[in-house]
Design a protein around this nucleic acid. Sequence first.
DNA 1: TGTTAGCACTCAAGGTATGAGAGTGCTAAC
DNA 2: GTTAGCACTCTCATACCTTGAGTGCTAACA
Lengths: 347, 347
Amino acid sequence: MDLSDRKRKILQAIIDEYIGTAEPVGSRAISKKENLGLSSATIRNEMADLEEMGYLIQPHTSAGRIPSDEGYRFYVNSLMQKYKIGVEAVSQLQMILENRVSQLEKIIKFAGAMASKLTDYTTVVTAPSGQNLEIKKIDLVLIGNRTVMLIVVTQTVRNQVMNIDIDEEVCRKLAVILNQKLSGLTASEITFDRIQEIQREIEQTVSLSPKVLIDIIHFVYDTITDDADTEIYVNNAKSILKYPEYSDVEKAGKIFSFLEDKENLKKLVNSTDSSGDGIEAKIGKENNLEIMNDCSLVSINYSLGDKASGKLAVIGPKRMNYSKVFASLDLISNEIDKILKYYISDE
Amino acid sequence: MDLSDRKRKILQAIIDEYIGTAEPVGSRAISKKENLGLSSATIRNEMADLEEMGYLIQPHTSAGRIPSDEGYRFYVNSLMQKYKIGVEAVSQLQMILENRVSQLEKIIKFAGAMASKLTDYTTVVTAPSGQNLEIKKIDLVLIGNRTVMLIVVTQTVRNQVMNIDIDEEVCRKLAVILNQKLSGLTASEITFDRIQEIQREIEQTVSLSPKVLIDIIHFVYDTITDDADTEIYVNNAKSILKYPEYSDVEKAGKIFSFLEDKENLKKLVNSTDSSGDGIEAKIGKENNLEIMNDCSLVSINYSLGDKASGKLAVIGPKRMNYSKVFASLDLISNEIDKILKYYISDE
DNA sequence: TGTTAGCACTCAAGGTATGAGAGTGCTAAC
DNA sequence: GTTAGCACTCTCATACCTTGAGTGCTAACA
C-alpha cells in the first residue's frame, strides 16, 4: 500500500491545491505549478493510478480530481507539511492569557474564541466535567421566601435553587456541616452513602421535619453529582457559510441545527479519544454521522493537571487547512495547560 | 391620512397574504380570496392609491405589491387580528414553569427557548442587569495558590477570580466584614465611598500590606458594580435560514455574524423602550441599523417585581407573523413575571 | 360617479440550444 | 518510461425564446 515518492508528491500537490480552491484539480495545473519536471500526460497517468487506489475521486469524466476521505487520511498521516504559526500571534496569545487568569469558564471560552480566530473555522469547546475537581467550599443561602440556593465552589462555581421551608439559622448550621464533611473531596468521591452519613449528623444537630431533611439531602447530592449540564461552547458558527461546500442553504441549515443541538454535539465531541494528549482528526465518514460526511472534526484534550480535562475541537469542511488547524490547537492547548496548571496548583 | 374601510380591508388582506407566501401579491389573488365582491380592476385602483400613499411597494412593473415599512407599521398599529394561542400550549408552558422554579438564569434561558419554539423565529433574551438585585451574601474562597474567588450571591451568582497573596484566615475575616457591610444592599447602592469605608474597617481588624488591601478593595468594587457581562442568549438562530428572504447565503452570513456579535446585539435590544411593560415592534429601518433593514425586532420587558428587568425579543423577517409573535411574547412574559415574583418575594 | 371588462404592455422566470473551456483517456512516437 | 497530440466528454455560462402573472389605461356600463 505504499506509494512511490512521485505519487506522494503528486497527491500532496493535489490536496494542497484543492484545500485552497475547492475546485477539482486537473493534471495540467499540477504539472505547471509544481516543478516536478513532468508533463500533464504523465501526471494524468499517475492520477489515474491514485484514483484506482482510492485516494482520489473524479466528480465526472471531464473534471479534475478531488481527494477522497482516504486521500485526506493519507495526507494527514503522512504528507502534510508542518504549519508554523507567526511569532506575533503566539506572543499575543501568551500576553492575553497572562492578563486573563480568571475563572475557568472564561479561560475555556477564550480558548474557543482564540482557536476560531486563528483558524477561521467553527470551534467547539467543552468544559471539564468537574467531577474530579476538589470542592473548596459549600454554601447555603436563603435568597427568597422558601427559596434556598446551594453553591458549590470548586475551580468554578455551581449553584442550584430549591424551594424549601427553612430559616436562616438552619441554613447556617447546615452549611457548616456540609463544609466539614465535604470540602476537600471531589465530586466523584462523594457517594450517596457518604451523604446519608451527613444526614444522620444533621438529625442530631438540627431539628427538621424528616421530609425536609430528605429533600435537602437529595438536593445536595444531585447538585454535586449532576454532571448533565457540562457546558459546551460554539464559536464562529457563521464561518460555515463562508465555504462554497455550504453555499446550499439547505445544507448549511442542517449544520446549524446540529451546532445548536448541544446534546448531540457533545456526543460527537466526546466520541473522540479522551486518553491521549495528541491531536485527533476525524475525516468525513470517520465521524459515523450522516451530517458530518462532508466535514472534519479535529480535536485535542486540554487538562487541568491530572484532575479533569475537556476538549477543544474544530469543525470545518473536509478540505480544511489541517496543518494550520493542528498547529493552532496544539499551541492553544499548550498555553492553556500552562495557565491552568498554575491556576489550580495548591502549593 | 385615514383610510377608507375598503382600503383598510384590502391592505390587511395583502399583508396577511404576503406574510404567508413571501411573494408579491396581485389584485386578482385578493379579489378571489376575500369576499369583498370587487373585481380585480377595482382592487387594482385601490392598490395604486395605497402605493401612492406609501403603504405598498411594487418591486417591478409587472409584479404584485408588497408592504412597505409604513404598511407594516399601519398593519401592526391598526389592522392586525389578535392571535389566540392554543390552550394546550398555554397549559404546557405553565406546567413546565411550575416544575422549573430554579435559577434565574435557567428561567431566562427557558423563556428564550420557549419563545422561539412558539414563534419559530430567532429569539434574544437578556438577563436583568443585576444592579438592582439585593446582595444576599458575599464570600471569599481560596481556590488555589494565591488565587482567590469572590462570590456575590443575589438572585443569581456572580463570581470573579483574582491573584493575590492572602491566607485562609484573612479570607474568612474579610468575608465577615464584607457581609456585614454589604449584604442587604443592591449593587447600585454601593458607591466607592462606601467601599472605602470598608477599607478603613479592614485596616483596623486585619493586618495586610497596603498594596494588597487596595487591590482587594478594587477587586470587590469592580466585581459588584461590573455590569459589562450581562448575558445575552440567542435561540434558534438557524431559523433565519428558513425564510426565502435569506436564501442568499451572503445575506444570511451577515445576519449570523451580527447574532454572534453579542455587544452590538445588546445595543440593538437595549435601544428598545425600557420603561413600559407593553410590546414594542421595530420594523425594518426603524431599527436604525443597516443589517436590520429587512428584519423586524419585537420586544417586551419582563421584570423581577420592581427590582430589575430584562428583555425578551424576537428577530425575524419583516413579514413575520406579528400577531402570533405579539401573543407569544405577551404570554411568556406574563407567566415568567408570575414565577419570578414568587421566586424573589421576601415575605 | 363608481365599477368592471377588455386589451396592450411589461417583466421575471424557466426552458432550451449553443459554444467555450477544462479536463480526460488513449495511442503512437520518442 | 515519458510525452505530444487528438478525439471525446461534461460543465458552465450565455443568449434566446416562451410563458404567465400582473399592471395601467380606456371605454362601457349601472
